[in-house]
Design a binder for these strands. Structure first.
Length: 561
RNA sequence: UGGGGUGUAGCCAAGUGGUAAGGCACCAGAUUUUGAUUCUGGCAUUCCCAGGUUCGAAUCCUGGCACCCCAGCCA
């Protein structure tokens, strides 16, 4: 499997815009996009959508895409996040080559741009407190009023701004504001803040600055400096576009990018807000950013999702301006489709119960050949050891079984896949009535699982040898929340909606011997059970597997446990 | 009448005046040594609603309705 991303097959309204502009020769320098994460958290699947869009357009239209860290707020950003983001971008299959940048790389130019605005009377130093700025901004329905500092002279503004930069003032004492229109119906145009004072070291620029530019000012200029042609962002920035354009209209810039918005991704039964994901991590409600229940790329990776499956998902959901609330089944379908093709099969018994084959020789061991993939002989075969005592799945035995239960029950015959047909002769229970041992007879003529006389045996079970199997820990994962949209009800704390069964740890699982040497990240289909992935917690001889996704199960769906 | 957006099936989504693609989900059947996979068929006489224009409207016009975003010195 190639590490490079396949282009998104589907088109969308943004690609159509790019295409028609290219047809009109509007971009002689080629199309340029950018993926601009803030390094204040880990990337999630919503970012994957943005990456597929931005890097995908660059790839398909022979353009370029920058990976630009939007690092203008030093108190939330850290090198740990920078490193994690770079790792995740590469993992998803995208390459920035020599186009790794930071908004902070442009702090000098940004400062000069601010000075230019001041010189032209388009910006002023405001010495109102944050609270006063807020109250003078007006409301959604009422205009704001001008700051008393709005008409400071250019000379005074220049002097003050310079002194802000030199560290003469404490945090919060002054800000630089654009001089636009306090009565604008668009609140973003009511003299928005351009620079604030923060005496804080920065993850990239260190101690060099104590004033930091705001997003709304930084973003259009960074785009222009990188000759970005299409600045693609999510819908909540739509109202900011007027300010984006104002900046580009009022500062001398080398190029003229265009902002286009698309809707952000929401997935059922999870959350995509970085603030809330951070809270889950910090309050230790999950094991970390890479907890397999998290919608982060690192979480999905640890869960067993492949980059290709996530790219496929992004292609399937499309890019529009509609609110997107996607069902989990879409994502699950993508990983099942990928892993069905690529994951070798293996036997693992999650909740074992002992089976004794009374008519099988006591010390005999046979090796049966098993296909690594039933539909792909190229994936080869392995052998699995068989002996008198085995484990099967507790769920595969029922004492009083209905007609349609195609598994083991007293007097009934099933196939042990690749091995023999066995018939249940006796059930042994403990004092509280739990089945602890199932006795069977096997048909010696059915080696390999073939019915010698062609008799129909509907049920086929997976199994492991009691003597040869390996103990394993298996972690079952399910949706993180019990509500499709945990944020829907503002009276309910989303923490209270965490699914208590989102992680179920099985410590007594028995897996076939070949699985003892599973390497972290190896994926398997445990037959009849699901897709699993070896966790980094695995140790030699004691593997740990995460369930990526269960197999589709038309029996279990109709007969919930 | 604060501003900006969005309404096509349960969830996504094509569609750009010529008679509703596709995916997921769901249902039915075939094949199957995984109740998996695969395959086959079904699933919107109608596009938020109401009028209008037109031979013809999801597409154009008018008027409603519903939902989302915006009042950080966050991004």
């Amino acid at each position: 499997m190639s590490r490079t991303a396949r282009p998104m097959s589907a088109t969308n309204f943004i690609r159509q815009i790019v295409e028609s502009e290219l047809a009109d020769k509007r971009h002689p320098g080629g199309v340029v996009t950018r993926f601009p994460p803030e390094p204040n958290g880990y990337l999630h699947i919503g970012h994957a959508k943005s990456m597929c869009l931005n890097f995908g357009i660059a790839q398909d239209f022979k353009g370029k895409c920058y990976l630009r860290f939007d690092d203008t707020n030093p108190d939330r950003e850290s090198p740990e996040y920078v490193a994690a983001i770079k790792h995740d971008v590469r993992w998803l299959g995208f390459e920035w080559e020599n186009r790794l940048t930071h908004a902070s790389d442009y702090f000098d130019q940004l400062y000069q741009a601010a000075v230019e605005l001041v010189r032209n009377g388009k910006a002023f130093v405001c010495s109102l407190s944050a609270a006063d700025i807020r109250s003078s901004r007006g409301t959604l329905t009422q205009p704001g009023h001008d700051s008393p500092f709005r008409d400071r002279s250019v000379a005074e503004n220049l002097d003050l701004f310079e002194r802000m930069r030199c560290g003469e003032f404490a945090d919060g004492t002054h800000v630089l504001r654009a001089r636009i229109d306090m009565a604008s119906p668009n609140i973003n145009l009511r003299d928005p803040t351009l620079y604030r004072i923060r005496h804080l070291p920065h993850q990239n620029t260190g101690e060099r600055w104590c004033i930091y530019p705001m997003y709304g000012f930084t973003h259009p200029l960074s785009d222009a400096l990188e000759s970005v042609t299409h600045s693609l962002c999510t819908l909540e920035f739509e109202d900011q576009r007027a300010f984006y354009d104002w900046v580009l209209d009022n500062v001398t810039v080398p190029s003229r990018p265009r902002q286009i918005e698309f809707s952000r991704l929401a997935l059922d039964y999870t959350i995509m807000s970085k603030r809330l994901l951070t809270a889950l991590v910090e309050e230790k409600r999950v094991a970390g950013w890479d907890d397999p229940r998290m919608p982060t790329l690192s979480g999905l990776r640890r869960r067993g999702y492949t980059p290709a499956s996530i790219r496929d998902f992004c292609a399937r959901i499309g890019v529009t301006r509609n609110e997107q609330q996607i069902e989990m089944s879409v994502l699950e379908n993508c990983i099942r489709e990928d892993l069905d093709r690529t994951a070798p099969r293996a036997f693992a018994v999650l909740r074992p119960v002992r089976v004794v084959i009374d008519n099988y020789p006591n010390n005999q061991v046979e090796e049966f050949e098993a296909a690594n993939h039933p539909n792909d002989p190229g994936m080869g075969v392995r052998t699995v050891p068989f002996c008198r005592e085995l484990f099967i799945e507790q769920q595969d035995f029922m004492e009083d079984a209905p007609r349609k239960f195609f598994r083991l029950a007293p007097g009934r015959e099933v196939r042990l896949r690749y091995a023999y047909l066995i018939k249940c002769t006796e059930v042994i229970k403990d004092h509280s009535g739990n089945v602890i041992e199932i006795h069977c007879d096997y048909d010696p003529a059915s080696a390999g699982g073939k019915a010698p006389d062609g008799r129909k045996v509907k049920g086929t079970l997976h199994w492991v040898s009691a003597e040869h199997s390996v103990n394993a820990e298996i972690r079952l994962y399910d949706q993180l929340f019990v509500e499709p949209n945990p944020r829907a009800d503002s009276d309910t704390d989303f923490m209270d909606l965490i699914n208590p069964e989102s992680q179920v740890i099985l410590t007594g699982a028995k897996v076939e011997p070949s699985l003892a040497r599973a390497q972290c990240g190896d994926t398997f289909q445990f037959e009849r059970t699901g897709y699993f992935c070896a966790d980094p917690d695995s140790a030699p001889g004691s593997p740990v597997f995460n369930r990526t996704v269960p197999l589709r199960d038309s029996w279990g769906r109709k007969n919930p446990a």
